[in-house]
């Protein structure tokens, strides 16, 4: 990355792999389980979090020297809630269709632990520029896992990707269904999201044993 110094580039690339907020820090699990039954929902959620996390990180970073330490968590919560409400209101007024698609995600964004986690761990101690990059990086790392889980759940659970029937028609018995293949409805339920996530964590740690914690 020519534009960024090595250190800054690391802020973005680290959370994508070796310091992934979902698989390594195990944050943001609730939303990762709840909305990954479809690839499209995963992508929408990833974009929404990217927006809120990058902006929120900058706001918190700008305020870092004036926030009283005793109530900093409450201040962080207010910042994320305010941002989300503003976005929600503006969308409802000017992009009503989009706001309907996003409605469920709005509440989930406020409760996403990654956002509070990054505010607390990074934005409070760094300059706005760095905080912005950190926000982008962590949201991308979160989004990456969401998209992977969403991809497998939608493919194996519904036989579709982004709503398109990629494996053939299960009712007309075309494509792979002609050979007796059936969709696994269990993939659509939350437990399989957890198992899929577990498999990703397993694969990642067996490829890089430095990530395994000592006990």
């Amino acid at each position: 990355m020519g534009l960024l110094s090595k250190k800054d580039a690391k802020l973005i690339t680290d959370p994508l792999a070796d310091n992934n907020p979902v698989t390594i820090q195990v944050l943001g699990i609730c939303s990762a389980l709840a909305i990954t039954a479809e690839l499209e929902a995963s992508i929408v959620m990833a974009i929404a979090v990217l927006f809120v996390l990058a902006l929120g990180n900058v706001v918190i970073s700008l305020m870092r020297n004036i926030i009283p330490s005793k109530i900093r968590i409450i201040v962080q919560l207010i910042v994320v809630a305010t941002l989300v409400i503003i976005v929600d209101l503006v969308l409802k007024a000017f992009a009503y269709e989009l706001s309907k698609t996003l409605s469920v995600f709005v509440g989930l964004i406020i409760t996403n632990c990654i956002i509070m986690g990054r505010f607390e761990a990074f934005a409070l101690a760094n300059t706005p520029g760095k905080a912005f990059l950190d926000g982008i990086g962590n949201a991308a790392g979160y989004g990456l896992i969401l998209v992977i889980v969403g991809f497998f759940r939608e493919l194996l659970g519904s036989g579709t990707l982004l709503g398109m029937q990629v494996l053939g028609d299960p009712i007309e018995k075309t494509g792979v269904y002609a050979f007796g293949y059936e969709n696994n409805g269990f993939m659509l339920l939350a437990p399989m999201a957890l198992i899929t996530l577990g498999i990703i964590i397993w694969v990642q740690r067996s490829r890089n044993e430095a990530l395994i914690e000592d006990h």
Binding site: N65, P68, I71, I74, V75
Partner: peptide, 15 residues
């Protein structure tokens, strides 16, 4: 920023 009075004023203004 650790003082109680500052904390209360900050919270009030922010709200």
């Amino acid at each position: 920023t650790d003082k109680n009075s500052y904390t209360i004023i900050f919270a009030t203004v922010m709200v």
